[in-house]
Amino acid sequence: VTVDIKGMEYHFDNPEEAKKFAERMAKELGGELKVENGTLKVE
């Protein structure tokens, strides 16, 4: 699973970990979490 945090890509084997990480980063950065082509994106 790929997580894109404002252009920086992180790769996770575990989808649950990827989702938790993306949600935490969205909250910390005040960004919006989206799913695009199987990639979790925070913008």
Results as ranks from 00 to 15, higher is better:
Ala22Lys: 03
Gly7Met: 02
Phe21His: 00
Ile5Asp: 01
Glu32Val: 15
Lys27Asn: 10
Lys6Trp: 14
Gly30Asp: 08
Ala22Asp: 00
Lys27Pro: 01
Val1Thr: 12
Glu36Asp: 10
Asn14Cys: 10
Val42Trp: 05
Gly38Trp: 02
Glu28Thr: 08
Leu33Phe: 08
Gly30Ala: 07
Leu40Trp: 13
Val3His: 01
Lys34Cys: 11
Phe12Val: 00
Ala26Trp: 08
Lys34Arg: 13
Lys27Tyr: 13
Phe21Ala: 01
Ile5Cys: 12
Glu23Tyr: 08
Leu40Lys: 02
Gly31Ser: 07
Glu28Asn: 06
Thr2Tyr: 08
Lys6Met: 15
Ala22Trp: 08
Glu17His: 06
Gly7Ser: 02
Glu9Gln: 14
Lys20Thr: 09
Gly7Lys: 01
Val35Leu: 11
Thr2Ile: 14
Gly38Thr: 05
Leu29Tyr: 07
Lys41Asp: 04
Gly38Arg: 02
Val35Arg: 06
Glu36Thr: 10
Phe12Thr: 00
Glu17Trp: 03
Gly38Leu: 05
Arg24Ile: 08
Glu28Gln: 10
Asn14Gly: 05
Leu40Thr: 04
Gly30Leu: 07
Pro15Phe: 15
Glu32Asp: 09
Lys20Leu: 12
Met8Thr: 13
Gly31Tyr: 12
His11Asn: 06
His11Cys: 13
Val1Ile: 12
Phe21Glu: 00
Ile5His: 03
Glu36Gly: 09
Thr2Trp: 12
Gly7Trp: 03
Phe12Tyr: 02
Glu17Val: 05
Val35Lys: 06
Leu40Cys: 08
Lys20Cys: 13
His11Gly: 02
Lys41Trp: 09
Lys41Gly: 05
Met8Lys: 14
Gly38Ala: 05
Gly31Asn: 04
Glu32Pro: 04
Tyr10Asn: 00
Ile5Arg: 01
Ala18Lys: 00
Asn14Arg: 05
Thr39Asp: 05
Pro15Asp: 08
Gly7Pro: 02
Met8Phe: 12
Glu43Ser: 12
Gly30Gln: 08
Glu16Ala: 10
Glu43Tyr: 15
Lys20Gln: 12
Gly7Val: 02
Gly38Met: 05
Gly31Val: 11
Ile5Tyr: 08
Ala26Phe: 05
Ala22Phe: 06
Asn14Ala: 04
Glu43Gly: 11
Ala22Glu: 02
Phe21Ser: 00
Val1Pro: 02
Ala22Leu: 08
Lys19Leu: 14
Glu32Lys: 14
Lys27Leu: 13
Thr2Lys: 11
Leu33Ser: 03
Phe12Gly: 00
Ala18His: 00
Ile5Ala: 02
Lys27His: 11
Ala18Trp: 03
Leu29Val: 05
Asn37Tyr: 05
Leu29Lys: 03
Lys34Leu: 10
Asn37Pro: 06
Leu29Gly: 04
Glu32Leu: 13
Glu9Gly: 06
Val42Asn: 03
Thr2Pro: 02
Glu16Cys: 13
Val3Gln: 01
Val3Asn: 01
Met8Asp: 06
Ala18Val: 00
Thr39Arg: 13
Gly31Gln: 06
Thr39Glu: 06
Lys20Gly: 06
Pro15Tyr: 15
Leu29Gln: 05
Thr39Asn: 10
Gly30Cys: 13
Met8Ala: 08
Glu9Tyr: 14
Val35Tyr: 14
Val42Asp: 03
Asn14Tyr: 04
Val3Pro: 01
Asn14Phe: 04
Glu16Arg: 06
Phe12Lys: 00
Lys19Pro: 00
Gly7Asn: 03
Glu32Cys: 14
Glu17Pro: 00
Glu23Trp: 07
Lys6Asp: 15
Glu9Asp: 04
Gly38Phe: 02
Asp4Lys: 15
Lys19Tyr: 15
Val35Ile: 13
Met25Tyr: 06
Ala18Pro: 00
Arg24Val: 07
Val3Thr: 01
